[in-house]
Design a binder for these strands. Structure first.
Length: 349
DNA sequence: CGGGTTTGACCAGCGC
DNA sequence: GCGCTGGTCAAACCCG
């Protein structure tokens, strides 16, 4: 099992990540393929080592500096023949690959800034834009041909929001690959699907989700690797500006961690999907013990900056239950999953 | 009935 | 300039 985590917040930075001391950590690749460690043995998806724990692991393990130069071996099957002839995992440093796989939109010039601040279009994506359009439409048009009106309406609705001349600004993005049978991984937040597109050169469609929390404009794309259908590529865009699930589904609830040194920052709950996966796809565990985080990359000015809060929080959570990274290290598992080069460089830091 | 999903259409950016 | 593709919208539909 392997997971790929990467962030394509700033593709160009990612491309430049090869350059030493690049602030960007883009292109970082973390190979957990062989890392039976994290969730090995009795580990259950919902156990102390959940998905986010694993993420935490990576973030603990993968220091930005490591991202800069680490060039891991391929851990996934050859990349899609057409989408990108280059190996997906190794070449994530390359903006092109990032673009090809996780987020095509990465081709757009992205600001490394976190645009998802309270004043940003978070909510606008939800209602503002549509309302705005509706309002605009209201006064101007009264009664023409119904069809015409509809057409205009459509046009307006779609033009309005985008008309705001400015180039579409991108939130920092953070993507990761997960080996899972479930397309939409439940990360504890509530998402609303707002679109689906066929992906070129891929039999699997890409789904677009938005966080349903008011004021939170976080989006995520979910798609399956055309190469390995068992691999789900999830790309987060933006950062949640709210605590955990407002209206938790199922067993998920706000899981504040008082022990967190980060005070009020919320703690990633046990990902529900992990349970789901375990229940639905038990065989996964047979083949490999843990959630497969193939690799993680970030191309922002700093790894930290581009990682969603819910991930970052985890990163610093030093509680025993979440300190998977330290666990790995302690158990020497890190050596199994982190290429020598990577470890080497880590020491040098 | 409210909230989520599906789906066709539209727009913008990019490459040729 | 044109076509392709990603991203988004929103009506229709579904579901609890």
């Amino acid at each position: 099992m392997a997971n790929l985590i990467f962030s394509d917040e700033n593709p160009s930075a990612a491309a430049a990540a090869a350059a030493p001391e690049a602030t960007s950590s883009g292109g970082s690749i973390f190979d957990m393929a062989t890392g039976a460690g994290a969730c090995d043995g009795d580990t259950k998806w919902g156990s102390s080592l959940g998905f986010m724990d694993l993420l935490g692991i990576h973030q603990d393990v993968i220091a930005p500096s490591l991202f800069d130069s680490f060039q891991p071996p391929p851990i996934l099957p050859p990349p899609p023949p057409s989408t990108s002839s280059e190996p997906l995992l190794h070449q994530q440093l390359d903006a092109k690959q990032l673009q090809a796989l996780p987020s095509p939109a990465s081709t757009l010039p992205e600001s490394s800034e976190v645009l998802n601040n309270p004043a940003t279009p978070n909510s606008s994506s939800f209602s503002s834009s549509s309302n705005e359009a509706a309002n605009d439409h209201e006064p101007t048009k009264a009664e023409d041909d119904e069809e015409e009106e509809q057409d205009q309406d459509k046009t307006k609705k779609q033009l309005k929001p985008k008309k705001k001349n400015q180039k579409r600004q991108r939130e920092p993005r953070f993507a990761f690959m997960t080996k899972s049978e479930v397309d939409h991984l439940d990360d504890g937040y509530r998402w609303r699907k707002y679109g689906q597109k066929a992906v070129k050169n891929s039999p699997f469609p890409r789904s677009y989700y938005r966080c349903t929390s008011a004021g939170c404009g976080v989006k995520k794309r979910v798609e399956r690797s055309s190469d390995d259908p068992t691999i789900v590529v999830t790309t987060y865009e933006g950062q949640h500006k709210h605590p955990y699930p407002i209206t938790p589904r199922g067993s998920i609830g706000i899981n504040m961690d008082p022990s967190s040194s980060f005070g009020p920052s919320f703690v990633v709950p046990q990902p529900q999907y992990l349970h789901q996966q375990q229940q639905l796809q038990p065989y996964i565990y047979n083949s490999s013990p843990s959630l497969n985080i193939t690799s993680i990359t970030t191309s922002g000015s700093s790894f930290n900056a581009s990682i969603p809060d819910f991930l970052q929080d985890r990163r610093f959570n030093t509680s025993p239950t979440s300190s998977s990274a330290s666990l790995l290290r302690d158990n020497g598992l890190l050596q199994d999953i982190v290429p020598t080069q990577m470890r080497k460089e880590a020491k040098e830091q």
